[in-house]
Design a protein around this nucleic acid. Structure first.
Lengths: 157, 157
DNA sequence: TGTCAAACGATAATAATTATCGTATGATAA
DNA sequence: TTATCATACGATAATTATTATCGTTTGACA
């Protein structure tokens, strides 16, 4: 069985533990920012996190929010939904297919729909949602980025 | 059976047809830009498209590339891999799950791994690729964006 | 407590994208 | 064909998202 969801106090305790373990100072700002993330379910962008954190910490700077989000990502405390947020990436292949993505160098390769068992929904989508397509994003490190030579700053080790 | 892949001359002919059909002028620049996209398999960003197009059209401007990429996206001639390129989107939920994405307002909702049949690869990944996770992105219009009131500039109609 | 590296806030710099504006050109019809 | 005109173009300014810098503050540990 997958492990049961922790509540927020438990997750904050785990957060303290992980910060200590990784040599990250447990600052007031970090705790507020991380709690704000735990309390949101709308996958906020940095600006939205900043707005929320400011309610509790009016003097926090946007730069601090950015720096800590990056720190949390590197520490694996957070995931980024938007792997390609740095720039628009185009795809002229209009036939259905999926993608293999390198989270480090951001390279994208196509894989055919036939390379995967069909994606089947077991539940209805939320009422009113109009489905357009399903894109499977297989994330990892490409051969070049997974090679020993480029593993100094690996994402997962 | 899914339809067979067209070659580039066929796709360019289709491109002309679609431009005419949608009232888009068939300019020299548009043809070169679209052909450049058809010839690339690396899912380029606008800067990379610009560099490539400049080899054939040294006076093209980056703005023209951007404008036409946007036009092609709106016309459905192109797909954007990076739905969230506008900004980083954070996810504090570290348990495995998938996402439901509105391509219009960019809202993101979580769906559990149990809401989908398991994703099963039928082939090996390319040699050396180190898999980290599989993210299924169910794209479409959320209830609010699919409502008649907000459908003036719909993505698919 | 005192020390010090790490983190902070303020702010400047950079990168990606969009908007503006005067000129050029593709589409249409005389 | 050529004249007309809206659309698209190139140049460039403006905006937005993100990162870097730098002097000051603070959490961790002796």
């Amino acid at each position: 069985m997958p492990r049961v969801t922790m509540d927020i106090p438990e997750k904050m305790a785990e957060f303290s533990r992980l910060c200590t373990q990784r040599g990250l100072a447990l600052t007031h700002q970090r705790q507020i920012i991380y709690r704000a993330l735990l309390e949101t379910y709308d996958h906020p962008n940095p600006e939205m996190v900043y707005e929320r954190v400011r309610l509790e910490l009016p003097n926090v700077s946007l730069g601090t929010v950015y720096k800590n989000l990056k720190t949390f990502l590197e520490a694996g405390l957070l995931r980024e939904v938007s792997v390609h947020h740095e720039a628009m990436r185009m795809d002229a292949n209009t036939e259905p297919h999926h993608h293999l993505v390198c989270v480090r160098c951001k390279s994208i390769m196509d894989i055919g729909v036939g390379d995967l068992d069909p994606v089947v929904l077991r539940r209805r989508l939320p009422r009113g949602f109009r489905l357009q397509r399903v894109n499977v994003e297989i994330q990892g490190l490409c051969a070049a980025c997974a090679s020993p030579a480029s593993l100094e700053s690996s994402v997962e080790g």
